[in-house]
Amino acid sequence: MTLVRFNPVKELLNVEREFGKLFRDFEGRFGFGGDKSLGDEYENAVWMPLTDVLEDKDNYTLYLDLPGVKKDEVKISYTEGRLIISGERKQGTVSGDKNFHRVERTYGKFFRSFDLPQRIKEDKISANFSDGQLTIQIPKADEAKPREIAISVK
């Protein structure tokens, strides 16, 4: 059994999510595009990793805090401009004679998505995982990089 951390705000978020769904359905029914759905992984997620986003002229770099998550438990996918990082943090096998005094860490499924500008090299996205921190490097497409234009003064 996974212990789920009590989060009073979650109730509020659920209300927001339900309302969102209602309006999305409405839009869908009447032929409006609506929002791109994030799918089941988003609906089932109970926590999201903290993230830093950095940018330089060649790359976007993302740092995600994922302590206690194994390398093969993280899924990174990229479709139509959206980068999705999802997975599950398992509590591990806790034998019956162990008691919990404190559970502050959150376990279960996590989800995070980022809408990236279209102009990136999607086949060159690379990721590295060390000390519970996931680093994702996203190179920008050549046409998105700032260029210097030489102006000749006559």
Partner: peptide
């Protein structure tokens, strides 16, 4: 660095 800049920071 001078070129690598924070866009968004949570950590």
């Amino acid at each position: 660095t001078d070129t690598l800049k924070y866009k968004h920071s949570e950590i």
